[in-house]
């Protein structure tokens, strides 16, 4: 179910959208873990989801810092995504 969303996400956008799609993919993986942990009644799935959560938080903080840095260097995020960013 969520593989569809995940695959669709990876292909599409750049930069801000890339970060968002990475988040969505991590979310899908976490959902798979939770579903598996609920299927076999184990707590391991939720533990793995906690790890995924921590990793997503750290990843997105570093990624956004890099993105700000890039924006300050180049004035735009990309030749493509600048138009997206400005609406």
């Amino acid at each position: 179910m969520f593989a569809l969303g995940t695959i669709g996400l990876l292909v599409r956008r750049n930069l801000v959208f890339t970060l968002m799609s990475i988040e969505i993919m991590l979310n899908a993986a976490g959902l798979a873990f939770i579903a598996a942990g609920a299927h076999w009644v184990q707590a391991d799935g939720q533990v793995m989801f906690l790890f995924i959560l921590a990793m997503a938080a750290s990843e997105v903080s570093v990624g956004l810092a890099l993105l700000l840095r890039l924006y300050h260097q180049h004035g735009a995020l990309d030749t493509d995504s600048a138009s997206e960013m400005r609406g």
């Binding site: 968002m20 938080a57 956004l64």
Partner: peptide
Amino acid sequence: APFIAALEVIIYAGAIMVLFIFVV
């Protein structure tokens, strides 16, 4: 998994989304 649901709302929809919106 109600505990994980609460964590999802707090951390993802709270913290990470605020970070994204702030940067945008």
